[in-house]
């Protein structure tokens, strides 16, 4: 389907092919650059980043230092504290992914097995609407509406009941009350859930019904069939959803930048602020336009970020196949 059918394209030499088919064959090869437009765009992005940076910085100690020091007057003494940003990214994206995966497993299972068609369809549509809301809107909602509530009500409550847990009792080193890891994780979770739900749901729906019927016929309950058979058959889709969601969470800059606080620190508690690689790239862009040394460092940040997201998106495609639900298309119900 995807290609020139060889049986059609290459007819026996005895009967001359109609001119339309000669042109067709020509087109299949001459048109190749058309298919490579996405590849060219990808290469252009990668090349622009690689060629504008200072790659040797990636190997230097000041890039990997654990303290941040940037004063435009003394660019020689700059230290970039990259591990701290990487840690901030890992904490926020990792926790958000954990919650999003659990939640979207529950949602996808409900949608495929437990909800009647009409209700499932409307709930799926509503969930997909979450995917369409711009990240900057999540950001302002988080900063203006949720952060005060988090700071004044939710966090004191959590602290009074759960202070005995690690990271639940520590100081709230936050830029503004309520901002920080907890809020960023919540916002990221809400942003990723529609994507992971759609992919897991697709892969659950694609499990052949014969397999399920066999399980039910052996006396397994609906839930046992879901847990032991259906999820197991669909596990590649679940893995794909996890990789893709992680890539999305790692790359999200605006919403995270608005609610994560922005401090360069290892957060002492979930009520404290931190910074992710993507958020740092956004925070610093303004001053980067003025200072070459800062810009070079940021380009290396961007390069590592690009490599991480490419890696996870590649894993996602390996898991779900090239036509698998990749990107936002599936969350839009396509």
């Amino acid at each position: 389907m995807a290609t020139a059918d060889p049986a059609l394209a290459a007819s026996p030499p005895a009967s001359p092919t109609p001119p339309a088919w000669d042109r067709y064959k020509l087109l299949t090869w001459l048109g190749s650059p058309l298919a490579l437009i996405p590849l060219l765009a990808l290469l252009a992005v990668a090349l622009a980043i690689v060629s504008s940076g200072d790659l040797t910085l990636l190997l230097r100690g000041d890039f990997w230092s654990l303290t941040f020091n940037w004063n435009p007057l003394y660019p020689d003494q700059a230290a970039w504290a990259f591990p701290l940003y990487l840690l901030g990214t890992a904490i926020t994206a990792g926790l958000a992914l954990l919650f999003a995966t659990l939640l979207s497993l529950a949602l996808a299972i409900s949608l495929t097995a437990y909800l009647p068609g009409w209700l499932g369809r409307s709930l799926a549509t509503l969930t997909n609407l979450l995917a369409g809301i711009p990240s900057v809107v999540y950001g302002i909602w988080g900063y203006v509406v949720l952060a005060p509530y988090f700071g004044l009500t939710l966090q004191p409550t959590l602290r009074s009941y759960l202070a005995w847990l690690p990271f639940f009792g520590g100081p709230a080193a936050a830029a503004a009350p309520g901002t920080g890891v907890l809020l960023a994780v919540l916002i990221l979770t809400v942003m990723i859930v529609p994507l992971t739900t759609a992919i897991i749901r697709d892969s659950l729906a694609n499990v052949p019904s014969a397999v399920l019927e066999a399980s039910l016929a052996l006396g397994a309950t609906q839930w046992e069939t879901m847990r032991r058979v259906r999820l197991r058959v669909a596990r590649r889709g679940v893995m794909g959803a996890v990789f893709l969601g992680f890539g999305r969470a790692v790359g999200e800059s605006v919403a995270v930048a608005m609610v994560v606080g922005g401090q360069t620190q290892i957060p002492p508690s979930i009520y404290s602020g931190t910074t992710t690689v993507s958020a740092f790239l956004l925070y610093q862009q303004d001053s980067a336009f003025q200072y070459a040394a800062l810009l070079h460092a940021l380009v290396d940040f961007a390069l590592v970020l690009l490599l991480i997201t490419l890696f996870f998106n590649f894993l996602a495609q390996r898991a779900t196949g090239e036509r698998g639900a990749v990107g936002q298309t599936s969350a839009a119900g396509l």
Partner: peptide, 13 residues
């Protein structure tokens, strides 16, 4: 493959 990877490139990059 390129299309899928491009969809995953972060907006900030």
């Amino acid at each position: 493959l390129a299309g899928n990877l491009l969809a995953g490139v972060p907006a900030i990059v």
